[in-house]
Amino acid sequence: MKVWLALDGVGHPLDAPPDSPWAQALTTLRPLVDAGAALDATLGVPGLPQSGTGQSCWLTGQDAVRLMGEHFGPHPGPTLQRLLRAQALPVRLVQAGARTALVNHYAPAYFAPQRRPRVGCFPFAFQAAGLPLNPSGLPLVPASLGLGFQAPWTPAGLGLEDLERLGTQLARAARDWDLLVLDLWFSDLLGHAGREPVPPEVRAAARAYLQRVDALLRGLLEGGADVALSSDHGNMEDLGVKSHTVARVPLAASTEILGPADVVGGGRWLAAWAGLSPAPEQKDDLAP
C-alpha cells in the first residue's frame, strides 16, 4: 500500500521566506514534512538544480548531476535516458516482479504527435519499464489537482473534499500494487510564474495547490496508505523569484526517515522503502 507523491519545484519550509505558500494551515501535509528530512539538492555543484537531474537522482539513487557534469533539465536527454532505462525505480521494480504504476492522468493532447517530443523523467521511466501511461483500473489524478491550467489557475472541477475522497480511493487501490507514483509537476509551473512583487493570483494559486496536496494526502493516510513525499528542487516556496532556488527539499513519509542528507540519498532511501536493495553504482559508459 505504498504511494509516492513526487512534488516538483517545492523547497522545504525551513528554507522558505516568511510569506511562503507553506505559511498557512496545512494540517496533514505540514506535520508530515516537519517530521521528515530537509535534503540538499545542489550536490555541491554550482548553479540552480533542475528537474532532469534532480528527478533522475530520486528515481535512481544515483548522482545524475555528477554524471552530467552540471544541473540539467527540465527533460532528460540521451545520457539521463540511459541512466533511467538502466536503474529507474519502476524499471527495477518490474524486473523484481513487483507491480507499480504512474497514476497521473494524461489528457489526449499529451499523446498528439510533436515535432520535438519532450517527455519528463517520470513518464519516461515508467514507459522504459514497459508500463503504460493512464493505466486502466486505477483512479487517475490530474497534476493540477483541479486548478485551471492557465492563469489565474482558478479551481476547475475537483474541490478539497473531492481530492480527499480521491486520496482514499488511491489508498484502497494501492492494496493490490507494490507502489503507486504521482508526478505533481504543476507546482513548478506555478513557481515559474513568481516575481517581485508577487502577483496576487500567483500567491493564491500556490497556496491553493498546497491545500490540495494536503487534502489528497489526508485521504491517502486515512485510507491506510504508506506515503512518501519528495521534491526535486526549490522554486514555489519563494514566489519572489521566477527561477529555481537552492533551497533544501523535503523527504517526508508515514514511516521513519534515517540517513539521507541529499537527493541521491533520498533516492536510495525510496528504493529501500519500495522494497529494493541499493542499486549498483552508475557505469562510466552512461556518461556523455
Rank of each mutant, 00 (worst) to 15 (best):
Leu93Val: 05
Ala96Asp: 08
Gly97Gln: 09
Arg99Leu: 08
Arg99His: 09
Thr100Val: 06
Leu102Trp: 00
Val103Trp: 04
Asn104Ile: 08
Asn104Ser: 09
Asn104His: 00
His105Thr: 03
Tyr106Gln: 01
Tyr106Ser: 02
Ala107Glu: 10
Phe111Val: 07
Phe111Lys: 11
Phe111Tyr: 09
Phe111Arg: 08
Pro113Glu: 12
Pro113Ile: 13
Gln114Met: 13
Arg115Pro: 13
Arg115Thr: 14
Arg115Trp: 15
Arg116Asn: 14
Arg116Ala: 14
Pro117Val: 09
Val119Tyr: 10
Gly120Ile: 08
Gly120Trp: 06
Gly120Lys: 07
Phe122Gly: 04
Phe122Gln: 06
Phe124Asn: 05
Phe124Ala: 10
Ala125Leu: 02
Ala125Asp: 02
Phe126Tyr: 11
Gln127Glu: 08
Ala128Arg: 01
Ala128Asn: 00
Gly130Phe: 02
Leu131Glu: 00
Leu133Ala: 09
Leu133Thr: 12
Leu133Pro: 05
Asn134Lys: 04
Asn134Glu: 08
Ser136Glu: 11
Gly137Tyr: 06
Leu138His: 01
Pro139Met: 00
Pro139Tyr: 01
Pro139Ile: 00
Pro139Asp: 00
Leu140Gly: 01
Leu140Trp: 00
Pro142Trp: 02
Ala143Cys: 09
Ala143Asp: 08
Ala143Gly: 10
Ser144Thr: 11
Ser144Gly: 02
Leu145Ser: 05
Gly146His: 10
Gly146Val: 11
Leu147Asp: 05
Gly148Ile: 04
Gly148Met: 05
Phe149Thr: 13
Phe149Met: 14
Ala151Glu: 14
Ala151Gln: 14
Pro152Cys: 06
Trp153Asp: 15
Gly157Val: 12
Leu158Glu: 14
Leu158Asp: 13
Gly159Tyr: 05
Gly159Arg: 06
Gly159Asn: 11
Leu160Glu: 11
Leu160Gly: 07
Leu160Lys: 09
Asp162Met: 15
Asp162Glu: 14
Asp162Val: 12
Leu163Tyr: 13
Glu164Gly: 12
Glu164Gln: 14
Glu164Asp: 12
Arg165Lys: 14
Arg165Tyr: 15
Leu166Met: 12
Leu166Trp: 09
Gly167Pro: 05
Leu170His: 07
Ala171Met: 12
Ala171Ser: 08
Ala171Arg: 10
Arg172Glu: 05
Ala173Cys: 04
Ala174Asn: 02
Asp176Glu: 04
Asp176Thr: 00
Asp176Phe: 01
Asp176Lys: 01
Trp177Leu: 01
Asp178Ile: 03
Asp178Leu: 00
Asp178His: 08
Leu179Gln: 08
Val181Ser: 07
Asp183Ile: 07
Asp183Lys: 03
Asp183Leu: 05
Leu184Gln: 11
Trp185His: 15
Trp185Ile: 14
Phe186Met: 03
Phe186Glu: 01
Phe186Gly: 00
Ser187Arg: 11
Ser187Ala: 15
Ser187Ile: 13
Asp188Met: 13
Leu189Arg: 12
Leu190Met: 07
His192Gln: 09
His192Val: 06
Ala193Ser: 10
Ala193Gly: 07
Ala193Glu: 08
